[in-house]
Nucleic acid binder design. Structure first.
Ligand SMILES: [Zn+2]
Ligand SMILES: [Zn+2]
Ligand SMILES: [Zn+2]
Ligand SMILES: [Zn+2]
Lengths: 169, 169
DNA sequence: TCTACAATGTACAGCGACTGTAGAAGCAAG
DNA sequence: CTTGCTTCTACAGTCGCTGTACATTGTAGA
């Protein structure tokens, strides 16, 4: 057993180390430091030996960030939502708008990926598996006009980014 | 009108410049140079003033790469398929296997994105749009236990990469 | 108390697949 | 000759982390 567990168990309601925060909220230690660096996690207090100490607030914040990331939100989108939360009070229309944009992004990705699935399935079904010189997979990959659909360019469907959140002013 | 067009029209069956190749095959000039650098486009001949000159072979090769990229294949996967083509002759089983792996990747992405779509739709439907303090979107983003599904971590579903193509030997 | 090892600190490089930039040089047309 | 386009090389930046190197600190067992 890691020593840390015993150590932290004793003072479970006191401030926690970065490692404990990492385990509690489901992130890597480096990721937490990275979030601090880019300013979406607040800079925590330090011990006399310069180590970060976190409160329950930090756990909540980090859980929010991680879960939003798991749901595909970009860092700028998350940053915007955090700022909206911190100016507490007022309607949530803007938050819902950001989530709605994220939903649009997800749906666009699904549409594209279904087109890819279709093309890949088709080319694999049409290949008789004999020779490379006549392989249908190679043929289709060499010539988009053999495709059924306009499947678009690679990963042009991006996340809700800075640009979509804050259009060119 | 760009001068290039007139210029190139005169000698359309001769070697072409990198800009003409870019337009013909649908890529950016820098991308072509990048492909050369990483070794999936062969190094072309140069003019006396050090400019790249391309043949129809290069057009074919670049079209293959771009179309495979549009269908989501990774560079290592494309590199492998190019090598399989160049050792011409033999069955296409390996090519089809790579395409099959790509299909698996695409299907896994679709599955995950559908889960995300579901969660996003649910949280947006449940929000009454009144106040940030009670916003359902914020609530769900703060607490994964309010989700219906295990929607997984961000972008853990990767492309067919070096590792999947050449598992640890 | 000594020793080992775990955890933390900073700083920086790397991933994938490009894209954009800087600065120099060439090339053709008006 | 000047203007404007293209090309050349080299390198930095994108995104969201992840991994590494090396130094320091904290803790537990002997
Ligand atoms: Zn085949
Ligand atoms: Zn196609
Ligand atoms: Zn709301
Ligand atoms: Zn969830």
């Amino acid at each position: 057993m890691p020593q840390k567990e015993k150590h932290q168990a004793k003072k479970s309601r006191a401030n926690m180390s970065i490692g404990t925060l990492a385990k509690t909220a489901g992130a890597k230690v480096q990721t937490i430091r990275y979030y601090e660096e880019i300013g979406i996690m607040p800079r925590p207090d330090r011990t006399h030996s310069n180590r970060r100490t976190y409160t329950q607030e930090a756990v909540k914040r980090l859980r929010f960030i991680r879960h939003a990331r798991e749901l595909g939100f970009s860092i700028p989108a998350i940053r915007a939502m955090i700022e909206l939360q911190s100016l507490s009070g007022g309607p949530c229309a803007r938050v819902d708008e950001i989530a709605g944009q994220q939903l649009d992004v997800v749906r666009a990705k699904i549409t594209r990926l279904k087109a890819l699935e279709n093309e890949l399935t088709r080319m694999l079904n049409c290949c008789d598996g004999s020779d490379i010189a006549t392989c249908r997979v190679i043929e289709v990959l060499s010539d988009h006009s053999l495709c059924e659909s306009e499947h678009g360019s690679p990963e042009n469907i991006n996340m809700v980014s800075e640009k979509t959140l804050f259009p060119r002013n």
